[in-house]
Amino acid sequence: MSLAVQARALYGFSRGNQALLSIAQPLVGALLATDHPAPGRLTAAVLATAAAFFAVFAANDLFDARLDRRSAAMAHTRAAPDIDSAGGRHPLAEGRLRFTAGLAWVLVLGAFALAVAAALSWVCAVLFVCAALLEAVYCKLATVTAYKFLVSGVMVAIGACAGWFAFSGTVDPLRLGLLAVWMAAWEIGGRNIPNDLADVEEDTPLGIKTVPIVYGPRAAARLAAALLVLSAAAACALAVAAWPSYGAVGLTLTALTALPTLVLPAARLLRRPDGPTALAVFNRASFHPVGVVAAFVAGAWVTG
């Protein structure tokens, strides 16, 4: 197998596009802690975050390899493209990546992320370990309960809060609380449930329990839409809480970012709770944290 093919398989294994976009989540936490992060510390945090997300997304496929192989054997295809498809979905299950190579990839990236996180703050290291354990729990609950989405929400919220503790040793209940609510609502309403709604045909024969399978697509769409609106409100509340650093520009741009990435997709999903619409919601929502980072950076630049 050529190096290029192997690299493509590893990128797909880690859902590279989603992993790179996810770096924005703890960056928002960092920008809430300080509007002028030290460049060296910021670089270390970005590298640790990138390694952590590449490892955790890959670990998901590692844990779910058995279910993914059964799904691959059924030759299901998604109704529409999504940003996670770069490099191909589930390369381990499809035989394009050896299990030992996948395991080594996860362990090396995870060890690097943990080491850098520990150097930044012991709290960051603890939060990373907690997030990794929650990922394992989430995968184990695949065929057990549809409420595993709660685990996913907590896991993503923990990851975002790690960004705060990389730059601050204090606890701000308001900002950290809003950050956790924003991220949990965004993860469940923008990624988890829409992704499950797009995979109903694939997941049903495998015995996987998700909200759209157990409660139906309309109930899933209503829950996702409510959480998307909650996420938009929490993002704006965060901008208000950080007003001294990011001002009116930060708040305005945060609200403008939430409209096309969260609010309008929520309305479309309510009108059409089907697979293609759900994937469109997933794709748009995935860019929301990046937009918030850009809003905060622009606000900091203007307020000076």
Score class of each variant (00 low, 15 high):
37 P>H: 07
37 P>G: 05
37 P>A: 08
40 G>I: 02
40 G>C: 02
41 R>V: 09
42 L>T: 02
43 T>M: 11
44 A>E: 08
46 V>R: 01
46 V>C: 08
51 A>Q: 02
51 A>N: 05
52 A>H: 09
52 A>I: 09
53 F>H: 15
53 F>P: 03
53 F>R: 14
57 F>M: 05
57 F>W: 08
58 A>H: 07
58 A>W: 06
62 L>H: 04
63 F>G: 01
64 D>A: 00
65 A>G: 00
68 D>L: 01
71 S>E: 14
71 S>P: 06
71 S>N: 11
72 A>W: 04
73 A>L: 07
74 M>K: 11
77 T>S: 13
77 T>Q: 15
79 A>P: 05
80 A>F: 08
81 P>L: 02
82 D>E: 14
85 S>V: 11
85 S>E: 10
86 A>F: 15
88 G>N: 04
88 G>V: 04
89 R>A: 12
90 H>L: 14
90 H>E: 14
92 L>R: 05
94 E>G: 15
95 G>Q: 08
97 L>S: 02
100 T>H: 13
101 A>G: 03
102 G>D: 00
102 G>C: 00
103 L>D: 00
103 L>C: 06
103 L>R: 12
106 V>D: 01
107 L>A: 12
108 V>K: 06
109 L>D: 00
111 A>Y: 03
112 F>K: 07
116 V>W: 09
117 A>F: 12
118 A>T: 14
119 A>S: 14
120 L>W: 12
120 L>E: 06
120 L>I: 13
121 S>L: 06
122 W>E: 03
122 W>Q: 11
123 V>T: 14
124 C>R: 06
125 A>R: 05
126 V>D: 01
126 V>A: 15
129 V>Y: 09
129 V>M: 08
129 V>C: 09
130 C>A: 15
131 A>E: 01
131 A>R: 01
133 L>Q: 07
136 A>C: 06
137 V>G: 05
138 Y>S: 00
140 K>I: 13
141 L>P: 01
